[in-house]
Nucleic acid binder design. Structure first.
Lengths: 126, 126
DNA sequence: TATAGTCGCTTACGATTGGTAAGCGGGGCC
DNA sequence: GGCCCCGCTTACCAATCGTAAGCGACTATA
């Protein structure tokens, strides 16, 4: 096995970008509208969701469908390439279930969802 | 399936941080010394490798062994928790092999490995 | 007519993180 | 002494992220 593979590198840097993984998971779980995703993923802002979705669309992992109805409805769907990531996502989920301490995970999610009073006062947090 | 799972989130943001994936792959392929990893991964700097290894050690994914020999030899190894990621890594590798265009990947790696003549010269006023 | 609200973005700006280069400590080697 | 090696650490600047606000097309309410 080679120590470095450009394709592997590109793949993991792509799906590993901030929020990308959770966005793909939300899409897979049936959330397909912009606002459904922001609601489903605590801490994720409009700006980043928009940015990530554009990247994923450019990569051919999701496709964007615009329904020119009432308040413009936009639907995002996994392409075949995107659905091919399901087993990867499942693998990560299994690993997380076995090895990630739920409390760590919760505190992380909280910190992202509600970084209320923490950041301002720190003396020199690193 | 829930749209959001804190443990999944934490897991993917952890292994998805910049360089983390390729570092783990390098470790798995037998490179275990600091300098072996920097050599194996084009574009990865000392600073980031050091930072990522510290994080991975703190997470219990790699362990650090110091051999007080000649020029201090430091060995990094995957723990059980780290080795449990093998199937995830394999899944990503398979996906990449099927879906990532080698040329895209090469150009990406090149850009990272050899920004030789581009960056140095002027004409980059912010 | 005016005001307000919805959805999906986009813009602006400060805070965090990443990349590049240089230095450092402890040893051995000439 | 001066110079190399390894594994970091520090310093500095650019890229990315998080927060908040605004925008365009449209409707609903008054």
């Amino acid at each position: 096995m080679p120590a470095f593979c450009p394709r592997f590198h590109r793949a993991i840097e792509l799906i590993g970008r901030r929020w990308t993984g959770v966005i793909l998971r939300a899409l897979r779980s049936g959330r397909c509208r912009f606002s459904e995703i922001t609601e489903a993923v605590p801490g994720l802002s409009d700006r980043l969701l928009s940015e990530r979705l554009k990247e994923l669309e450019a990569e051919g992992i999701v496709e964007r469908l615009v329904h020119p109805e009432f308040p413009v409805r936009v639907e995002y769907r996994l392409t075949e390439k995107g659905r091919a990531l399901d087993q990867v996502m499942d693998g990560i989920a299994s690993w997380a279930e076995r090895w990630i301490d739920p409390e760590d995970a919760v505190s992380t999610a909280d910190a992202e969802a509600a970084p209320v009073a923490t950041a301002v006062s720190g003396a020199n947090p690193r």
